[in-house]
Design a protein around this nucleic acid. Structure first.
Length: 567
DNA sequence: CAAGTGCAAT
């Protein structure tokens, strides 16, 4: 076509580039731009830069911007919005400052689009004063500009400021748009302010935005963050044309309310409705698998990620951490390790997950080995790292090293110990029957003690049948957390271990008096067709006879190996 | 010839 002279004018080239860009064919758009080399004017450059930036290829777009500057093409008011957006994607603050200087020189500062791009960029960089100054100077502040300010404050966590700007915009008579509403709803989600969220919901209906999918999505999220699940589900159920955000929002709502069964169910429903999950979906669903110890579901999601080509960024650290954590919590350190070893980018959390995994599965040496490796590769251990390290010492009985780590974590690594670290130490000493020292630490540690610490001490006392310390610990637990039924069971077991059966009855009485009920123990077992929940002594499962038979033989094999259950 | 803002997970 080009050779035939049908598209020989610069304006047709620009139109063609725009057409391909709109159809998401940036390869073609870029190709047209490249073949049209003698006819490249500012229009062709603008269209191509815009296309590249809009499709996440800011690097290439900025390259073109530099090229057009070098050959002496003067950028115009259409060039800057996409160039600034591109520089903001690349987090290149110094180039933005330069571009801003050029905008000033070319007298384009009063253009709303250029101004808006600059404002958004400064907001993204957290340079609030710069953004405010530009905003104040623009005389024609349209609703888009107001939205940028409201959302900029919302996204940087300055919630009060976001609401202040929102009120100001309403006062000067600018009618909120759909974009305003979603931003303001996110503020109320973050503030856990159900009443204000409901008020916005009312406004949404009144002004006729009720069928906007993004607004419904924001409402789902607001209601779920404000812990009103019924409302969240109601909105979801009535949203016409649910998109990826709708599904991700409702899945996340169930995940954060702790309903992991429903989380997985909704994920399956989403797939059956042919809505394709993305990185956000899987990073929300994986923890649900972890919590249910649903290894096969987790593995299925992992496989789905691996076979989905470029759909997922398999170098994403958070995604890989979620996969590793799932394998750790489902008990497969081997799979976790293989993910860890194949990760190109690792962060402190990646190491922490492995250390904690080895710790709780009883591989104390492996945990400490990973700690040393992480340190040698110049990762800075943090609070969580030391929880893992101390848990490793506790679970594997490395008393000397545990004490050493606690003593050195601040001086050598700059991590100030917290109650949780002391709890690990109390737990460690308790398991090792060093109950006096454990009690001393629980009593005198430099923090307000909490029930978790005393429960750790109680668990240690039970394990070794130390009724005296168990009683002290129980008193403390009940003082700090009166409803905790596990404590009654623990002390009851301590009396059993000490042979003081008459007092076991006292505990049952006490529980009755305090109206405390033991929540039945529950375990999960994964069979071919899914995860099954078992409540202690539950005989309702269709296969319970076979399962209990299997459990009995398992227990027998365990005791042959010298394992004595601590009940 | 053509442009700027929102909602989901860590």
């Amino acid at each position: 076509m080009l050779r035939n002279g049908l598209l020989d004018s610069p304006s047709s080239i620009t139109s063609l580039i725009n057409m391909y860009s709109k159809c998401n064919r940036i390869g073609y758009a870029f190709g047209i731009f490249n073949t049209a080399s003698p006819d490249r004017n500012v229009f062709a450059y603008n269209a191509t830069i815009a296309s590249l930036v809009a499709h996440g290829q800011a690097e290439k777009g900025i390259e073109l911007y530099r090229e057009m500057r070098e050959i002496g093409i003067i950028p115009d008011r259409f060039t800057f919005p996409c160039v600034i957006k591109g520089l903001s994607d690349l987090m290149n603050a110094s180039e933005v400052k330069k571009a801003h200087g050029l905008v000033f020189k070319l007298e384009l500062t009063l253009d709303v689009f250029v101004g808006s791009a600059l404002i958004n960029c400064y907001l993204k960089f957290g340079l609030m004063q710069e953004a405010e100054m530009l905003f104040d100077r623009l005389s024609t502040r349209d609703v888009v500009l107001w939205n940028s300010m409201v959302n900029g404050y919302a996204q940087t966590g300055q919630l009060d400021k976001a609401l202040e700007v929102f009120r100001e915009m309403c006062e000067v008579g600018v009618v909120p748009s759909r974009f305003t509403v979603t931003g303001v709803l996110s503020v109320f989600s973050e503030m856990d302010d159900l009443e204000s969220g409901r008020a916005i919901h009312g406004f949404v209906v009144k002004i006729g935005y009720g069928s906007s999918v993004p607004i419904c999505n924001a409402l789902i999220d607001m209601y779920s963050k404000c812990k009103s699940m019924e409302d969240a589900f109601e909105i979801f159920a009535t949203t016409e044309g649910k998109d990826l955000y709708s599904w991700n929002s409702i899945i996340s709502a169930h995940e954060s309310s702790g309903d992991y069964d429903a989380t997985l169910r909704l994920f399956g429903k989403m797939l059956s409705r042919r809505v394709r999950p993305d990185l956000v979906t899987v990073t929300t669903v994986l923890p649900a698998c972890s919590n249910l110890a649903a290894l096969s579901h987790g593995k299925a999601i992992h496989s789905h990620i691996l076979v989905s080509g470029n759909r997922y960024d398999t170098n994403d650290v958070l995604l890989n951490n979620a996969i590793m954590d799932m394998y750790v919590k489902c008990g497969s350190m081997r799979d976790a390790l293989s993910v860890f070893e194949n990760m190109r980018n690792k962060d402190v959390a990646s190491w922490n997950i492995m250390i904690m995994g080895y710790a709780v599965h009883g591989y104390g040496n492996a945990a400490l080995d990973f700690f040393r490796q992480m340190r040698d590769r110049r990762f800075r251990p943090d609070m969580v790292t030391f929880i893992g390290v101390l848990s490793a010492c506790s679970h594997s009985g490395f008393l000397r090293q545990g004490r050493e780590f606690l003593a050195q974590m601040e001086s050598l690594y700059g991590v100030v110990p917290t109650v949780e670290h002391y709890t690990c130490i109390v737990d460690m000493l308790g398991r090792a029957n060093q109950l006096k020292e454990a009690y001393e630490i629980a009593r005198s540690m430099p923090f307000e003690s909490n029930s978790v610490v005393w429960r750790a001490l109680l668990a240690g006392s039970r394990l070794h049948g130390n009724v005296e310390i168990a009683e002290i610990a129980l008193t403390k637990v009940l003082e700090l957390d009166p409803g905790h039924c596990g404590s009654y069971v623990l002390i009851s077991n301590a009396y059993v271990a000490a042979g003081r059966y008459d007092e076991v009855i006292d505990v049952r009485d006490l529980m009755r008096q305090k109206n405390v009920r033991k929540v039945p123990g529950c375990s999960w077992i994964e069979l071919k067709d899914g995860v099954h929940a078992f409540i202690n002594s539950d005989k309702t499962h269709p296969l319970s006879d076979r399962i209990y038979a299997e459990l009995l033989s398992l227990t027998a094999r365990l005791s042959e190996q010298g394992y004595v259950p601590g009940t």
